[in-house]
């Protein structure tokens, strides 16, 4: 393992809160406001880490463990996440399942921590979160696999990358892959994008800035967390956004020159453009009615299935 591979997880740890800032600035720009500073998320994190915490008398250790398990899972996931064509720290056949299930670990503990408060609102949020994940998980997995079936088997510095690992999948995507099976990639990317919006609690699925608890999904689950606990939640959601951003940027910016730094830089650019796209969507769309969200997600599932059926057929 080359030392250079460590750069990406470290960079992600360092830069991911910036993504939240970019989304906010974009939205402010469209609303004609000046907006928060780009580094606001860092200030928030620093402030929250220094604060003390308040706990509900109802809660048990599960509530305190939730944010830590979530952050640990998100940080572990960074180790199998490739950046563009550059391989991840660890790659192995089926690491995409590991990544998805780590996100599952994160969700499991966020949900049980929410249920631990005994609040009706947090229960409601938890219920919606698990409902949407049922549809989002297969869509994510199938769209990644569809991309894996397109790409030519990739070789990284003499060692063949496992064909069905995230690193292998992303190393195999390139401009020529777009040329000969762009349809599949487009379908997979659209499915992935819908999953990104869902998993990161973005409009049109969820509104991170709403102040009506009744309509929230993700934010309502963490209402009772405070201080360092809330900082960890904020941080892990930034990392989660980074993870999905890297997955999507890896398709949309298929620069595969073979040079780790160049490819990495191109993908990094893609990752930072993505929050702008999210900001544009959030400024131009209203959130969907909650009953419509499952339809959107099953749409994503259909796109993913279509992609994989096409690639196996064609």
């Amino acid at each position: 393992m080359k030392m250079i591979f460590i750069l990406h997880p470290l960079g992600a740890l360092l830069l991911s809160p910036l993504l939240l800032g970019i989304v906010n600035r974009t939205k402010a720009f469209f609303a004609g406001r000046k907006g928060l500073p780009l580094l606001q998320a860092y200030y928030d994190l620093a402030r929250l880490f220094q604060k003390s915490a308040v706990y509900s008398r109802t809660t048990s250790w599960v509530f305190r463990a939730g944010p830590m398990v979530g952050l640990a899972a998100a940080m572990t996931a960074l180790l199998v996440l490739p950046i563009g064509g550059g391989a991840a720290c660890l790659n192995f056949t089926g690491d995409l399942i590991f990544l998805i299930y780590l996100l599952g670990v994160m969700r499991f503990f966020t949900v049980v921590a929410a249920l631990d408060t005994g609040s009706a609102f947090e229960g409601m949020g938890a219920s919606r979160e698990v409902q949407f994940s049922i549809l989002a998980e297969p869509a994510l997995l199938l769209s990644l696999l569809a991309m894996g079936e397109i790409g030519e088997s990739a070789i990284d510095s003499g060692i063949p990358l496992p064909h069905l690992s995230l690193s292998g999948i992303y190393a195999g995507l390139s401009f020529s892959a777009w040329m000969h099976s762009g349809t599949v990639l487009l379908l997979a990317a659209s499915a992935l994008f819908i999953v990104l919006l869902t998993e990161n609690a973005r409009i049109p699925v969820d509104d991170p800035n709403t102040h009506l608890e009744l309509t929230m999904i993700h934010e309502v689950m963490v209402l009772d967390h405070s201080g360092p606990d809330f900082a960890m939640i904020l941080y892990s959601s930034a990392i989660k956004l980074w993870i999905f951003g890297a997955l999507l940027a890896g398709i949309l910016v298929p620069v595969r020159s073979g040079d780790f730094l160049l490819d990495g830089a191109a993908t990094l650019g893609g990752i930072f453009l993505l929050p702008i796209g999210i900001g544009v969507i959030e400024s131009s769309m209203a959130r969907l009615r909650l009953l419509r969200v499952p339809q959107l997600l099953s749409g994503a599932g259909v796109l993913a299935i279509l992609a994989i059926v096409l690639v196996l057929k064609g």
Binding site: T183, L306, G314
Partner: peptide, 18 residues
């Protein structure tokens, strides 16, 4: 060329689903 055919067919499939 085949890319366009595929794209068109996928679009047709999507119209059915819609």
């Amino acid at each position: 060329m085949e890319l366009w055919i595929d794209a068109l067919i996928v679009l047709l499939i999507l119209t059915n689903l819609k």
